[in-house]
Design a protein around this nucleic acid. Sequence first.
DNA 1: CTCATATTCGACACAGTGTTGATAAATTAC
DNA 2: GTAATTTATCAACACTGTGTCGAATATGAG
Lengths: 210, 210
Amino acid sequence: MRPRGRKKELKGDARRRELLNALRRLLADGQDFGELNVAALAKAADMSRPTFYFYFESKYEALGAVVAEVRSELIEGAEILFSGRHEDPFAELQQALQGVVETWQKEAGLMQAFAQAASNDPGLWQQMESFVEDFVEPTGRSIVAIHEQQGRTTDLETARQLARTLLWGNERNLYRAAVGHYSPEQWAELLQTLTAIWAGAVLYQPEASS
Amino acid sequence: MRPRGRKKELKGDARRRELLNALRRLLADGQDFGELNVAALAKAADMSRPTFYFYFESKYEALGAVVAEVRSELIEGAEILFSGRHEDPFAELQQALQGVVETWQKEAGLMQAFAQAASNDPGLWQQMESFVEDFVEPTGRSIVAIHEQQGRTTDLETARQLARTLLWGNERNLYRAAVGHYSPEQWAELLQTLTAIWAGAVLYQPEASS
DNA sequence: CTCATATTCGACACAGTGTTGATAAATTAC
DNA sequence: GTAATTTATCAACACTGTGTCGAATATGAG
């Protein structure tokens, strides 16, 4: 009665993909995730509504799957730029932030949907937390390293906390930019402001007390 | 056929209050706004569901009305502290941020609901934008004033943009704190980190270039 | 070809929204 | 005070969207 082995790729994997692609496409086209319902999503992938539920629990799970797909790609973008030898920390900071800003600019629909839906679905919120947390560790290390180069000593946990707070601050501002359909100039301006904030927090602090 | 004038206060104003109070109470008790439906809200105020619709368009409008009520109180808390003569800017900054953090701590349920619901309802999002914008102007002015005291010149629009970005960063971090049911120690830690970020952005910047 | 498993979808039950229209309660005019 | 008028209430309805069930169909291994 054991299930007999399966060799060839199931058709279902392809159908699942179609669903994810359809969702990505809809979001890229500016579809608001809150207004998107399962019927429309299923239709966009040429299937009936119940069939959607064969593949996913809910539209939130589907969105989570899309985000998981692009996750690595997004993280690499910023992480690499942060692992230099910190000869010119300001320039590196700006480069790293530019990477993040460009990602949001390019994937505005997806990122906006993710951030928006995360406040409605506990699973997605958790995913967002862990997504940000992926950046916290390397960023925290970089902060410690930069401070060492400046002759200061910073505790890694403190650096992590600073990184976390800055990263969530980024998130909200980038979300606003996406929602507000920023022009390229406005995106650039935001990048500049974020860079100033990060630089102030990471590079220009006086000696720690207490 | 013109409506004849009305002198005495309508009963309706009182009923409306009851609804707002009920909503505030529910949120203070930790009720999740997303899970709250109109039936439950109406019941909490001892009326039927259709009666709720006599007073409000939707639960979002009701939440907006609650927020509008506390708005002035919230803004004063931080604004006053920001209008000093900037003899000790760091201390003022910390005081102002402490005020904001305490507000969120005290009204965590309401603030969390507001931030969460704002991503679902365009009207509330607009209200949130304008809420933050109320802080942008005085904060921007303070930044300019502080910089003057430091012998630097900063353009007001640049200062506003910096203030806006920092404020939205606050918002997201405070929201996270509310969602995560931070302990008093964690709130204090967050306050410290936010203060470091604001200080770095406002007080410790090198001369502007560009 | 046969059969177990994978996939599809019509039809259903349910939860929540927002409106309507008939009624009751409060307020005002005289 | 009471008739006229406006304000407030809610049962009942129509509608939108969710999630499930079960019967029918497709697929691939042997």
